[in-house]
């Protein structure tokens, strides 16, 4: 029997080999549109670009808006326009990697296309998937989109500054997340106010240096 997922998986394994041979980590950021992937990248650039050599692969359906937002941090950025495609695949990452100088990088962040379903099923060769969800989307995301939260190596709950006014039930969220993935670390933060971001950065630095 032929596994249809093999093609993407084989290329992901190749990407993983290329990166691990050079000691580079890759983090695949996945969320719905507007949860705050680019905002979190801005915070990461502000706080860590002085001590960690980072690059970004921006997956965007059609524009270069997010890449433009990150330009001021003076880090290498490669834009992949999926032309309507709902997720990045490992082949597009393999091509994007050719644009970087891989001798001078510690970590590559991939901002996947805004979508809670499809990106969860395509291994890009990352070290782990970072699932982002924001309080304004509702507390039911882990149970409605279980595979992303199951696949995630870490979960960020963003926009904690809006938790009260959006009626987000934190207990429901945490217990649903526990049912889907009881082992995943959760970071609650606000890219707007900065609350909770220091703890996340500490964890991120550790996971990059490992």
């Amino acid at each position: 029997m032929k596994n249809v997922l093999d093609r993407n998986r084989d290329m992901a394994a190749r990407v993983r080999d290329i990166l691990s041979a050079r000691g580079i980590r890759m983090i695949n950021m996945i969320s719905s549109p507007g949860a705050g992937k680019t905002s979190l990248l801005e915070v990461i650039c502000e706080k860590l670009s002085g001590e960690i050599r980072m690059a970004v692969i921006e997956g965007d359906v059609a524009t270069d808006r997010d890449a433009q937002r990150l330009k001021k941090y003076d880090i290498p950025i490669v834009l992949i326009n999926t032309g309507g495609g709902c997720h990045l695949d490992s082949n597009s990452i393999d091509i994007a990697l050719r644009e970087f100088d891989l001798h001078s990088l510690d970590v590559i962040f991939v901002e996947n296309v805004g979508n809670l379903v499809c990106p969860a099923h395509f291994d890009l060769g990352e070290n782990f998937k970072l699932a982002l969800v924001s309080t304004t989307e509702g507390d039911d995301k882990p149970i409605k989109y279980p595979m992303l939260f199951r696949e995630a190596g870490a979960v960020v709950l963003n926009k904690t500054d809006l938790m009260d006014c959006s009626g987000f039930n934190r207990q429901t969220f945490i217990s649903d997340l526990d049912n889907v993935n009881s082992q995943v670390p959760l970071f609650e933060l606000s890219c707007r106010t900065g609350e909770g971001t220091d703890a996340f950065m500490e964890w991120l630095k550790l996971s990059i240096s490992k």
Partner: peptide, 11 residues
């Protein structure tokens, strides 16, 4: 929508 990409590889 990942169904589309999977069908492509399947074909």
């Amino acid at each position: 929508m990942h169904e589309l990409a999977i069908i492509e590889d399947m074909f």
